[in-house]
């Protein structure tokens, strides 16, 4: 799992049936101080997150377990929207 910030989204009409109805969001992985760490990825959303939200992402095979269908072929899923970190180390103020 890692922290990230939602920076955009992707739309697709032609997709595998398992992805029907899923939101696909661009997530930039971040450190606890909000600075980017590594390359942005696309994640399925299990939380109704929006652009600018600070989130946490489950990766690997376990990513599917955050969605209703545990056999979804996703390798990254947003599993929660972060309210705050304690101690607060974010350079920007939370969300």
């Amino acid at each position: 799992m890692f922290l990230g910030r939602v920076i955009g989204f992707v739309t697709a009409t032609i997709k595998i049936p398992e992805f029907e109805g899923l939101k696909l969001l661009w997530v930039q992985p971040i450190c606890r101080n909000g600075s980017p760490s590594g390359k942005a990825i696309v994640a399925c959303d299990a939380t109704q997150a929006g652009i600018g939200d600070r989130v946490f992402v489950v990766d690997s095979r376990e990513a599917a377990f955050a969605l209703p269908d545990h056999a979804t072929p996703t390798d990254a899923t947003i599993a929660g929207i972060v309210e705050y970190l304690e101690p607060s180390t974010d350079l920007e103020s939370a969300k």
């Binding site: 599993a79 929207i81 970190l85 180390t89």
Partner: peptide
């Protein structure tokens, strides 16, 4: 352990569990 994460909207498995950075 550097920080604890508080999230209101999250998957039920994280309820009543501490998520840490």
């Amino acid at each position: 352990v550097r920080a604890t994460v508080t999230a209101t909207i999250k998957h039920p498995v994280y309820e009543a569990r501490s998520l840490m950075v």
